[in-house]
């Protein structure tokens, strides 16, 4: 599946909390470029998960929680990363766990708070170790930019934010899509 940066939803408490995991694999091509070796400086290749994609995974998790709360009727888009801190590099063979909670939500959007934890399979006794925190704002697109909102732009009727990839993710995670 394209551009899905979470592998599974492991817990979803409607309108409150979502917990997801992402397994980082050396088969992901971007790890081969991030970072390549630098023989001139004597540096070996250093495959680490780009922090921007960790944030994308958090956004997909929190966005799914926000979307689920309104039965996926709203087009939920990431509007603002208010704060983000990631303290450790994450390499292949690790599992990331994202826990996102809705802090506040109304018809035009939601603010969320998330933690990032790392499970290093080489050190299983450590368990999940907190490595970061993220605060994000999501906008309900139609109520802000759409015809009911400030700029009155026309967006397609169908919900292009939550497409087939999200539905498959929820289904394979055993999460029912609310009618």
């Amino acid at each position: 599946m394209r551009w899905m940066w979470i592998d599974r939803v492991v817990e979803l408490v409607p309108a409150r909390r979502i917990v997801t995991i992402k397994n980082v694999s050396l088969a992901e091509e971007h790890l081969h470029d991030h970072f390549v070796d630098d023989p001139d400086r004597g540096l070996p290749a250093c495959p680490i998960m780009p922090a921007s994609l960790v944030l994308e995974g958090v956004a997909q998790s929190a966005g799914t929680l926000v979307g689920h709360a309104e039965r996926f009727k709203e087009k939920v888009v990431l509007a603002k990363v208010s704060r983000a801190e990631i303290r450790r590099d994450v390499g292949p063979g690790c599992t990331l766990r994202y826990t996102a909670e809705i802090e506040r939500m109304d018809t035009v959007g939601a603010s969320t708070r998330a933690t990032i934890e790392l499970f290093d399979h080489a050190r299983p006794t450590d368990g999940y170790v907190p490595i970061g925190e993220v605060e994000m704002m999501f906008s309900h697109l139609d109520n802000n930019m759409g015809q009911a909102g400030k700029s009155g732009e026309a967006f397609p009727e169908h919900n292009f934010v939550f497409g087939d990839s999200f539905k498959t993710l929820l289904r394979t995670s055993g999460i029912a899509i609310p009618e």
């Binding site: 509007a79 603002k80 802090e103 506040r104 109304d106 959007g109 603010s111 704002m137 906008s139």
Partner: peptide, 14 residues
Amino acid sequence: ESIDFLDIVFQLEK
């Protein structure tokens, strides 16, 4: 920007 207004409202409430 527009989303900041929502952020400000949420933070003022808190």
